[in-house]
Design a protein around this nucleic acid. Structure first.
Lengths: 230, 230
DNA sequence: TTGGTCCGGATTGTATACAATTACTGCCGC
DNA sequence: GCGGCAGTAATTGTATACAATCCGGACCAA
């Protein structure tokens, strides 16, 4: 599963982060199962630590743990997909406004480096990594706003957004959001809170509108799962 | 700690819920330590299950787990206190508006029963229980709005609010919020989203303004802890 | 073939044993 | 009395052993 069989002896946080990255970059796709002793082999720790990591990820919404069955990468429903972006629409614009009033030159430099990395990843044909960086960009804004609580929620929402994108993204349109991020940085640099708020609102709507939200059959697995839950 | 030494063999979720109730009702106060084998004795399960419960509570912000030291009921800082109510101000008014459009007569009956219980608890001299019910009232509104994601966040925010209130509530003013809740129910019954939103906004500001947010020394323990972190 | 049942293997859930770390007490020197 | 130091008890962190549950295939009967 992972690129290289990694080093031994890791903490639960490190395991969770590496697995989270894999999910964010769509190397682990929704529905994939994570067996405990498989993960424990890869990371060279006991199942005890692995279970900590998996449960932590479940709490963030990345995994869904079914009792006696195991941990699976979550498959957000259409309803959950809507809810995620509704919640983001409530939290992020105000946060962007607050961030604009506190942005320092260092922050600007960091954000611009971030965008550059994002472009770089796209050029190298690593869309998964670009997507993860794009999510981190949004997180960075919450950090600048110095709102740890909201940042924490946003982390979960962005994680779930990544799953939503994996499931419902329209293939035809490439991710053209880099421009939106650049405009946001401009607003932040100018301490223009109102514009930052509006840009963020529009940016979220833009992503939202690029999702395919129609009801559709989910392939063979959904039938089995539907029966299981009967 | 608990009222009666409870029955044996409970699940992690049950343990977390009972402990959470104790925190919400201020029977477990911020700073209190929860030892693993003590809890495991009370509930008649092994430490393994207890640790699951404690970690789950830590994710919700109720507990803070310090490595090799144990789990303590969280003591939100002033900054965190502000952040909690800022986040609630972003989430709850819109949610109340959404709820107003979906409220059913059954929901109204439920909410009114809820308020009655709240008054009852106050009359019986159980302010802790009244506070918990008050928090559940807010959660109920998110449920009516059919926003599970926001409901989940709100659960955490209300938990933390309970801790904030335990630490920063001005003793002099009794909790007079019951009227606010009643007015909200009226707005919901009339499907008056705009009014519900405004009432919720005002209600949150009301609670917020009743907190004592000045900087102040935190007593003897903070010194020891400050030294520990040096 | 279809349907059902039973059994074996695989996987997760729980308890326990052990290691690592911390806190505490008592003692000593000053 | 005060501050440092050591040894021990107490507590948490991790690994492992065992129990419970689930999945899948074999087998049999209709």
């Amino acid at each position: 599963m992972a690129s290289t069989t990694k080093a031994k002896s890791a903490t639960a946080e490190e395991i969770a982060e590496q697995l989270s990255d894999a999910v964010h970059e769509h190397r682990l796709k929704p529905g994939a199962k994570l067996r405990e002793d498989e993960v424990s082999d890869v990371f060279g720790v006991s199942r005890t630590v692995v279970r900590q990591a998996l449960r932590a990820m479940a709490f963030e919404g990345l995994l869904t743990i079914e009792k006696n069955r195991g941990a699976f990468v979550s498959k957000p429903t259409l309803k959950e997909a809507h809810e995620v972006f509704q919640a983001r629409a409530l939290l992020e614009p105000s946060t962007a406004r607050a961030a604009a009033e506190r942005t320092t030159p260092d922050d600007i430099a960091l954000l611009e480096r971030h965008i550059a990395e994002e472009h770089d990843a796209l050029d190298r044909g690593q869309p998964g990594r670009a997507l993860k960086l794009s999510g981190d960009f949004h997180l960075e804004i919450a950090r600048i706003a110095d709102q740890q609580t909201i940042e924490q929620f946003l982390k979960q929402l962005i994680s779930r957004s990544s799953l939503v994108i994996a499931l419902y993204w329209r293939q035809r349109s490439a991710l053209c959001e880099s421009n939106a991020h650049h405009a946001l940085v401009d607003a932040l640099r100018n301490h223009d809170g109102a514009t930052a708020e509006e840009l963020m609102k529009g940016h979220l709507l833009d992503i939202y509108s690029q999702l395919d939200l129609r009801e559709h059959d989910e392939g063979s697995t959904s039938l089995k799962e539907a029966l299981r839950r009967s």
